[in-house]
Simulated scan of single mutants.
Amino acid sequence: MDDSLLPVVDEVTALAGGGKRLRPAFAYWGWRGLTGPDGEDDDAVLRAVAALELVHASALVHDDVMDAASTRRGRPATHLGFATRHGAASLDGDGAAFGVGAAILVGDLALVWSDELLRRSGISTEALIRARPVWDRMRTEVTAGQYLDLLRAAGGLPGPQGALTVARYKSAGYTVQRPLQLGAALAGAGEQAADTYSGIGLPLGEAFQLRDDVLGVFGDPAVTGKSADDDLREGKQTLLISLAEERTDAAGRALLARGLGNPAATPADLDAVRALIVSTGARDQVEQRIADQTARARQAIGDAAIAEDARTALDGLAVAATSRNA
């Protein structure tokens, strides 16, 4: 179309070039666990499940815009990167607004390309027809989950249960449950297999998101690729924060009110919030929930009627997804 679009393509490429590849891995092994000798071509399935990485890239870009995040995967968040391009090229208008607009379009393009990659992956027409309902449901859920996250940040969906509801729809479902079910659909498995994968995916997806929340506050930026202060400066209402609010006193709640969602908060202010999360036992409680939900998922993997190589791979993914440091 035009050479000036190359930075847009480069940005999608950079976003899709990083990350842990968990969603495609769950989908692939979900397929391998149930497929027979006359199933889909392996390379075609790999291309189909790779489309999940483009869905994820889209969600990351849009999430960073809504959260006003500064970094992603060790590089400037997309909206900041394009704002910098605006300034470097001495373009007219507001650079920040240009960056936000460009990031929205980068995310949209990644979502469009995810659909195109699935459709052109080479899987059979029958497999594509089976996959579409899961695919559509997953993309609807993650979009709805983003709205629920906005709503919670504005005071809706209060308390620990509200935090878990956001985690369920914004991340947990589309990280594990729906990818596994996508694999089952590609294999031509029925409702029983989909239910089995829900029994694995829902607790494991929640544990994955809770680990992400812990890393967002206590992680090493050199390892995670994002600032450990962003979630606190944004005032992200995770389960950690809800539990700390419940367990602290008036002085503690005042500390949270001063530190959370305050762009001017000092490093000492944010360290005090971290200390409060630890001293109230909120971090320990979240860690225990991660351990309990991971154990539930691993038990379900052990009980599932799937191929042994897939069982081994899924159990390894369960451990990696919930005990990671990035």
Rank of each mutant, 00 (worst) to 15 (best):
9 V>D: 11
10 D>Q: 13
10 D>K: 09
11 E>F: 02
12 V>W: 03
14 A>E: 14
17 G>K: 09
19 G>Y: 05
21 R>F: 05
23 R>N: 00
24 P>Q: 00
26 F>T: 01
26 F>Q: 01
33 G>Y: 11
39 G>L: 01
42 D>P: 06
51 A>D: 14
59 A>F: 01
61 V>K: 10
68 A>F: 03
71 T>R: 12
72 R>S: 07
76 P>I: 07
90 S>Q: 10
93 G>I: 05
102 A>V: 13
108 D>Y: 04
111 L>H: 04
113 W>M: 13
117 L>K: 09
123 I>M: 06
131 A>F: 01
131 A>G: 03
138 M>F: 03
142 V>C: 08
147 Y>C: 13
151 L>Q: 14
153 A>C: 12
155 G>W: 11
171 S>G: 14
173 G>T: 04
183 G>W: 01
186 L>W: 10
189 A>E: 12
193 A>F: 11
196 T>D: 12
207 A>I: 02
210 L>E: 02
226 K>Q: 00
229 D>A: 03
234 E>S: 07
242 S>E: 13
253 R>F: 15
253 R>H: 08
270 L>P: 03
276 L>W: 12
287 E>G: 03
291 A>M: 02
296 R>K: 14
297 A>F: 13
301 I>G: 09
301 I>A: 12
305 A>Y: 02
307 A>S: 12
310 A>G: 06
321 A>I: 11
